[in-house]
Nucleic acid binder design. Sequence first.
DNA 1: CCCACTTGACCCCACTTTTAACCACTTCTC
DNA 2: GAGAAGTGGTTAAAAGTGGGGTCAAGTGGG
Lengths: 158, 158
Amino acid sequence: MDQLHLRMDSLSPHQHFYAGEFRHSIDEKNRITVPSRWRRDEAEEFILLPEANHLFLLVMSPEEFGGMSSAVESNQAVSAHDRRIFLRHLHSRAQHGIADRQGRLVLPEELCRKIGLKDEVALVGGRGRFEIWNLHRWKRAHEEETPTYQHVANVIGL
Amino acid sequence: MDQLHLRMDSLSPHQHFYAGEFRHSIDEKNRITVPSRWRRDEAEEFILLPEANHLFLLVMSPEEFGGMSSAVESNQAVSAHDRRIFLRHLHSRAQHGIADRQGRLVLPEELCRKIGLKDEVALVGGRGRFEIWNLHRWKRAHEEETPTYQHVANVIGL
DNA sequence: CCCACTTGACCCCACTTTTAACCACTTCTC
DNA sequence: GAGAAGTGGTTAAAAGTGGGGTCAAGTGGG
């Protein structure tokens, strides 16, 4: 199983970097502006992937997602059965998202409800992907619960 | 035969994937609308392949099916006899399906009955193909499998 | 063997709902 | 102060859905 971890970490060497943390508001139509520094071209396309227990929303490029998918698919450390199940979950949880010309991403209603994205949210940079958190939850995880965050971070490999 | 499964999982040389899970209704004429994001071009042609024990219906492009077929054919890990049997099953189970101009796919009556596709169904994305499930069965399967997903997900770092 | 009738597939039209494109204004940054 | 970034709201287009009409293939009877 450790090989899987290694594989995911090393998959896209050319990966785009999203640096920093932004606090934006999400409007009544569940739109959120992607920070201008994180945009690459107009009419940008993203894949939205809620974290397993709806702690935050992962946002990445389709290429990144494709790489993730094929990394799982070709990983021989896990049984074929488990890979099938996992791939099904991965793809079924993922959603398409397209930014408008103002650089805003429209998030599905259901996703926002489950993750608790309303009013103020935090956009947290990462490698190849960034995360959208409920602001209060982010503050808690980041500032107050640093050890727990550290632990999660280690698992995630940030 | 397990090697064959392995092989089928790892083919898809092209990167096209269907992201997300849609809950649509199937009408009285057994028509189901393919989500617009999943459509490639007008008058689209699909291959319908019921899963071995009628758990769900696999839908894919003819090219994908061709690739699947030839991958089985050229797999040297399985005896020629087994390959012949498997190929015969594969081709006998497969059916043609064409979408109308509204993007709806008409499913054969018998297939719907066997798989239990009526009223509400779930369209589950995948790599190079998507699946059509009876909604209740999908919910059950999805929830039951979650622990396994959690396990793998933690390792991968989602 | 041909004709009439039945059945079912397919195509198109009309309506409803959802989505995304666009415009205008405010705020922030340099 | 100017330009870029972010926000709010309206409008137009596309997606989804239901139903009806038409044509073709299949079937049975004369």
